[in-house]
Amino acid sequence: MTRVALVVRGGWDGHQPEQTTDFFVPFLDANGFTVRVEGSPSIYAEDAFMDTVDLVLQVNTMSTIEPEEFAGLQRAVLRGAGFAGWHGGIADAYRNNADYLHMVGGQFAHHAGKDPADRIGEQSDNYIPYTVHITELGATHPITQGIGDFDLVTEQYWVLSDEYNDVLATTTQEVRPWDAWHRPVTAPAIWVREWGHGRVFVSAPGHKLDVVQNPNVRTIIERGLLWAAR
């Protein structure tokens, strides 16, 4: 039976919402989804269509969401639709809506930058080497099973979260001489969350196309999309 995947993308262009989501559309096609792509969350308010959706893939950094749009998205998830995304497209979206943040379970707070003396005023000022550590739960979860710790050079998200998340991988922000914090801070890097009858999947790594093309990140996202889908 064909399932329906809705891709909602937009927001800040620096996260390459079109390129990154286009990269996964063939995967969704190959796994039996009919894919619809929208450039704003206004589609969430269309209950008749949302009732047909099995998976929402969202990459829509910052932006805003209207009350009726969020109500439609939450209704779909509560009724069993999956909700998935990466980086700021899901964990730094709709800051105006606390209920959205509650459903997602994690909010971007910071990405540690390079030494101020080495910054040039570009996105790359925030690209640093770090390790994604698979948790004990992640070692046995279908999304991350068989994947070991791996290294990236990109934005390292400091995420505010809660204990309801099932955390599959973490990352630790170390303390450098120029940082404001005084001890290392470990935050979720990959997490899932059950919400009503739906499932939520979030990958903090995913800043740009080259990051989601990383073999480990790509595998995790592909598995996460299938895990979340109704």
Rank of each mutant, 00 (worst) to 15 (best):
V200H: 06
D151R: 14
E155P: 03
D22F: 03
F24V: 08
G89N: 12
E69Q: 10
P116Q: 01
L160D: 06
N165Y: 10
H102G: 03
P116G: 09
D13E: 11
D54W: 04
N165S: 05
D151L: 05
N214G: 09
A71T: 15
D54C: 07
G14T: 13
H102T: 08
R230N: 10
Y164T: 15
L78W: 02
N97H: 14
A187P: 02
N97E: 15
H15P: 04
P215K: 13
T219M: 09
E222G: 08
A117H: 10
R199D: 00
L152F: 05
K208G: 10
T219S: 11
I120D: 08
V200W: 07
V212T: 10
P205E: 02
T52K: 15
D151Y: 11
E174H: 04
T154Y: 00
T186H: 04
Y164P: 00
V59W: 01
E222L: 03
I221E: 00
G39R: 04
P177R: 10
A48V: 10
V104W: 05
M50C: 02
S40W: 08
V159H: 00
V211R: 09
A187Y: 00
N126V: 08
G146E: 07
V200F: 08
Q16I: 12
V77E: 02
P129M: 13
E136C: 01
T131N: 05
A117I: 08
V167K: 11
Q123S: 13
F83M: 03
N31P: 10
Q173N: 07
D47Y: 11
D151H: 11
R36N: 09
A81S: 01
G105N: 08
A91I: 14
I190A: 02
G224R: 07
N214R: 14
E66G: 04
H15F: 10
D92M: 13
R75E: 08
L6C: 15
W191K: 05
L28A: 12
L226D: 06
G198R: 00
F33C: 06
G138C: 10
